[in-house]
Amino acid sequence: MKIKDKVWVVTGGGSGMGRELVLQLLARGGRVAVADINEAGMQETAQLAGNVGARLSIHTLNIADKEQVLAFPEQVLAAHGAVDGLINNAGIIQPFIKVNDLEFAAIEKVMNVNFYGTLYMVKAFLPHLLERPEAHIANISSMGGFLPVPGQTFYGASKAAVKLLTEGLHSELIDSPVKVTVIFPGAVNTNISVNSGLQAPAERQAEDSPIQPLDAGKAAEIMLDGIEKDKYRVLVGKDARFMDAYSRLSPKGAARLIYKKMKELLS
């Protein structure tokens, strides 16, 4: 589905990859309703967008709050008159802590934001999307959704759940006007650690990596190109493409490679 003249809802649009998605959707002629828990961040996104008038609206929203999310479509319809596309981008990582040592509160927070937040958004907007001549849902999973990353096991579990949710939606909606895409970013240069309330060691890991994190703007471009082509799945970055192929060829070998990369960070 082409982006131009369509109304898009983007979660997590107050910073990082979400912000880039918003700016590029606007640049391609779309209208955007931005949802984020960080109102100041959304205001910055709006300033960067420049004079786009009514094509952009901002909405403070906690996607982990089911009642807030279920009431949200009416805000979008009031601002834009319709909704054609949903990009579930908002997400957080967990502290870099092993399963045995991570508190239940941290586990539940990750699952509530990453999986249930995505599920709530889909359930809230799907009835409206089904009424459109054409529509699109894009859910952002992660390379960690198909490959185990020690110290991010629950983050990976939440993103694996997003993967299966999205693939299930695709199958259920094949004969409908709603296209569905699942997106797997590798390492992308964003401030997800800060937004997750963490001081994670991902930056130290990136310094020694032969594949540097992808620029958030380039990542957003790849995602939107995939959405416009109605792709079933989109792999974002050389690392995501490589590990996707390697994990299919040798799941255990791919898992051991990631373990070696992460071992120092967990010691």
Rank of each mutant, 00 (worst) to 15 (best):
M1I: 15
V7R: 04
G13Q: 05
G13I: 06
R19G: 00
L23D: 00
L25H: 05
L26V: 13
R28H: 03
G30D: 14
A33Y: 10
E39N: 01
E39D: 01
G41A: 08
E44W: 00
Q47H: 11
N51H: 12
V52W: 03
L56D: 03
I58Y: 11
I63K: 04
E67A: 14
Q68V: 11
Q68K: 00
L70C: 00
P73N: 04
V76P: 00
L77Q: 06
V83N: 08
G85D: 15
G91S: 03
P95K: 08
F96A: 13
F96W: 14
K98I: 13
N100C: 09
F104W: 07
A105I: 15
L119T: 12
M121P: 06
F125H: 10
H128C: 08
E134H: 04
A135Y: 02
A135V: 02
S141A: 14
S141C: 03
F146V: 09
Y155H: 02
S158Y: 07
A161I: 11
K163V: 11
L165R: 06
E167N: 00
G168R: 08
H170N: 09
L173V: 13
L173P: 07
I174T: 13
V178T: 08
G186M: 04
S196M: 04
S196R: 07
A200G: 08
Q205C: 12
A206I: 11
E207T: 08
A220E: 09
E228S: 09
K229D: 10
K231N: 04
R233S: 08
L235Y: 15
V236C: 10
K238P: 01
K238A: 15
L249A: 10
L249D: 06
A254Y: 10
I258F: 04
I258W: 11
Y259M: 02
L266R: 03
